[in-house]
Design a binder for these strands. Structure first.
Lengths: 204, 204
DNA sequence: CAAAAAAGTGAACACAAATTCAAAAATTGA
DNA sequence: TCAATTTTTGAATTTGTGTTCACTTTTTTG
């Protein structure tokens, strides 16, 4: 054999992979998954369609990875808050605020990740990731209940309800309406209050 | 002209239309929208594919109508509760119970109507219908706030949160898990408590 | 530079469904 | 029954993309 992958090449390959992911993310952020056809991704990444398949076995897996990366980042942020200092109520408050704000900042991306219709494979992943979001809240709830801050409750259901509540409250307004900062803050505040009351912590 | 549509024919036509709707509903209930291809619908309804297009301009519009009919029926039931007797808290309690129960009874249908990936046209309709669900709860909330039963709150946000909360809490378990009646009742109870606390009414 | 191997290309292919439409069957009124 | 008209059929067409693969280009090493 007279060819062996050099470190430089290695780097270029990794680079290509990143470019694909980046291009996909960008397209999804702009026009949702439906705008992110392989041809479009390839064009934006400046490579051929065939190339994509050198790095990802299928469009679905590419999407799942993009979804996972984005969700993973969000969860990391949330987890930091969840495991940080403060009472359970405070942390829940902070987590909710943070999440709603971030979702409103990138409406299309949020829509795509929360509910845009895609193929079943991607959807399965989405459900998994939603569960992960729930787990972060669940941890706070368990802690709060242990410390007597929150009343006893079905933490799985409550966690799911929290995720669902802001999901729904966000996606409605996200689609067509573009809101100003003031409205956004009010919305964030409303959702937060709802969830905090629901969980039994301080209402405002 | 020697052909004029007779009343008998008129009836047959209407019948065909109903058969199409029925077949579609059935297929969706069994295997979601994805199983309800035009060919399958036609086969189940006992007619040719071309026939479908005599009654519906496109698959999307057929789906929208099926979705609308099903949702309309649910909303009718909810509205009856909402406009019925009892305190706002009681009515909210009843409405939530009813909704969760009905959804759990027909899991696939609920899944299809709540989140199954479909094309954008249908999805737009779905968002509209979700809003309608929200409106029913919103009405109860407004009433309850007026009567001093619930604390003042952003009723739009709260309504959306309620819809989102049980939607999420239901769809998770709906997909793979088939639950027994006891679990279902617990789940219904959990969701209900969450929402009632959130709204500020009696907790249990 | 040359040969071997891998990376990269993009037009062609595959595929699954929705949709159409020319022809066949059925209905109607005389 | 017959001609006019409508309904019904289902094979063929269309459509939109994902995916492949024979070929070209680039990279690597002797």
């Amino acid at each position: 054999m007279v060819y062996r992958r050099s470190p430089l090449m290695e780097e270029r390959l990794a680079n290509n992979r990143d470019r694909i992911l980046l291009a996909t993310r960008k397209l999804v952020a702009e026009g949702g998954f439906r705008e992110a056809q392989i041809a479009a991704v390839a064009a934006l990444a400046g490579m051929s369609t065939g190339m994509i398949y050198r790095y990802f076995p299928s469009k679905a897996e590419l999407f799942v990875e993009v979804l996972g990366d984005a969700v993973g980042a969000e969860i990391e942020i949330l987890r930091e808050i969840a495991e940080g200092p403060g009472s359970a109520g405070e942390r829940l408050h902070a987590a909710l605020t943070c999440f709603v704000r971030r979702a409103l900042r990138g409406p299309n991306l949020a829509y795509a990740f929360i509910t845009e219709p895609v193929d079943p494979e991607v959807d399965t992943a989405r459900i998994r990731y939603r569960k992960k979001f729930g787990d972060v809240f669940k941890a706070i709830l368990i802690d709060g209940i242990e410390k007597g801050e929150f009343p006893d409750q079905d933490v799985d259901a409550s966690a799911a309800c929290i995720v669902g509540a802001f999901t729904e409250a966000l996606v409605g307004p996200i689609g067509p309406t573009t809101r100003n900062t003031h409205d956004q803050q009010r919305l964030a505040e409303s959702i937060r209050s709802f969830c905090l009351r629901a969980v039994g912590g301080a209402s405002s």
